[in-house]
């Protein structure tokens, strides 16, 4: 059935779209700030996947260079984000994302 099929960029892009949609749903549904961060990582990975797929399609290394920078920014974002989560949860151990609606301590 699929034996003759070739893996085209469309397959990767559809997979990336599915991954992005799952991550988007997760951010909206979950209320634990840590799990929301993980869902943001899912969305970043979906975008990385499509960047590499386009790099392969267009035979251009710049897509992969962009993914490198996305990785660096994602690492910095996780470090700062987890720092904020630690600072909030240390004060109120059972806080979820809706408790932090007011930017007050």
């Amino acid at each position: 059935m699929i034996a003759a099929a070739d893996v085209t960029p469309t397959w990767y892009l559809l997979l990336a779209a599915a991954l992005f949609a799952i991550g988007c749903t997760g951010v909206l549904v979950r209320r634990n700030p840590l799990v929301m961060f993980m869902c943001i990582e899912l969305m970043l990975n979906a975008v990385n996947l499509s960047f590499v797929a386009f790099s392969r399609t267009y035979l251009d290394i710049k897509g992969q260079t962009t993914v490198f920078f996305v990785l660096v920014v994602a690492a910095a974002e996780v470090v700062v984000g987890l720092g904020i989560v630690v600072a909030i949860l240390r004060r109120r151990p059972s806080a979820n994302a809706d408790d932090i609606a007011e930017l007050k301590g």
Binding site: A17, F20, T25, V29, T57, L59, D60
Partner: peptide, 30 residues
């Protein structure tokens, strides 16, 4: 989940509609 399905439908439709369109390959190549 409704928003998620909407995002998937929107992006998926765009990808499927645009598949096999003209490809401008870079001069460098991989």
């Amino acid at each position: 989940p409704l928003v998620g399905v909407g995002v998937l439908g929107l992006v998926g439709t765009a990808v499927i509609v645009a598949r096999g369109r003209t490809i401008v390959q870079s001069v460098e190549g991989l």
